[in-house]
């Protein structure tokens, strides 16, 4: 019997937990990818070591297909693992997680194919691969080089599993909605209607004026929270995430021209850099309570 969707998540939790990762939780603000959960975005900065794994519901308003397309969703799940500093056996650790899911790497054609990840809006970039399992991209494997515009040292590595893809591979089904979530329950039963309505909302109903106003207000809030000697870094980051989500929705609504798009992106990136720097300074003021991993050569 192939693993169910929830068994895959549980097995990944068990595996990464055994590798010393903190099993943490999705962040309660809309975001486009697991990387933007502060457990990765902020923790990847600075010298303190970090190991965490979590599921992240991710929203990409533009990818909505009204539940008509078997692969694209405006709301989907990523499984994210981040380890800093990246250990020398990072690839072996990843392959171990596939073994834990019952995917025997000796029976399949597993490939690391160059794919350098970039999240330009948040000033993030890294080098790595997309991982192919018999031709299907099931994970993104990245060694961070830059986060929030800041060069990171030590380097963290991040694995992002597309949970739906991985499950479709394991269950050999051709539509995301046919995935068995738990015995007797399909992904479609859980999410087909949310996709249909979600797509309608993103493309047709989202209130453009409201989100334009929210974007401005949230951006101002980020700036305000970063003022002073003891800035509220986490609050600022929350509002930055809200800015990003408003921007994504406005894009899906077709309310942003190409020229405006660059202005929005530059604004978000500028704020992301300031939040990142504020976090680095803040941890330094605290005296790096998680310890210092770097031994400078």
């Amino acid at each position: 019997m192939a693993l169910t969707f929830q068994e895959i998540i549980l097995k990944l939790h068990a595996y990464w937990s055994a590798q010393g990762c903190l099993v943490v939780f999705p962040y309660d603000t809309e975001k486009g990818a697991g990387t933007l959960n502060p457990h990765t975005f902020l923790r990847a900065l600075g010298p303190e070591p970090w190991r965490a794994a979590y599921v992240e519901p991710s929203r990409r308003p533009n990818d909505g297909r009204y539940g008509d397309n078997p692969f694209r969703l405006q709301h989907y799940y990523q499984y994210q693992c981040v380890i800093k500093p990246a250990p020398a056996n990072a690839q072996a650790l990843y392959e171990g997680s596939l073994q834990a899911l019952g995917i025997d790497t000796r029976q399949h054609d597993l490939r690391y194919v160059e794919d350098d990840w970039e999240q330009a809006t948040f000033g993030c970039a890294g080098l790595g691969w997309e991982v192919w399992l018999d031709g299907m991209e099931v994970s993104q494997f990245t060694y961070f080089q830059q986060v929030g515009g800041i060069e990171v040292d030590p380097v963290a590595f991040e694995i992002t599993y597309g949970l739906e893809r991985l499950t479709m591979f394991a269950q050999k089904v051709d539509s995301v909605f046919d995935i068995t979530w738990a015995p007797g329950v399909t992904y479609g039963q859980v999410h087909h209607e949310t996709e249909r309505q979600g797509s309608r909302y993103c493309f047709e109903e989202a209130n453009v004026d409201m989100f334009q106003q929210r974007f401005e207000e949230d951006a101002q809030e980020v700036e305000r929270l970063l003022e002073g000697d003891d800035p509220l870094v986490y609050g600022a980051y929350d509002h930055l995430l809200k800015c990003s989500h408003s921007f994504n929705l406005l894009q899906a609504r077709g309310a942003i021209s190409v020229a405006q798009r660059q202005v929005y992106i530059a604004q978000i990136r500028g704020l992301a850099q300031r939040v990142a720097q504020a976090y680095v300074d803040h941890r330094e003021r605290l005296g790096h309570p998680l310890g210092l991993e770097v031994t400078h050569a």
Partner: peptide, 19 residues
């Protein structure tokens, strides 16, 4: 098994394109 996997991936891509 490897052939089936690759077939499934291409099928998915083409399904997407057809949409």
């Amino acid at each position: 098994v490897i052939r089936e996997g690759n077939q499934r991936v291409l099928g998915a891509r083409l399904e997407d394109a057809l949409f």
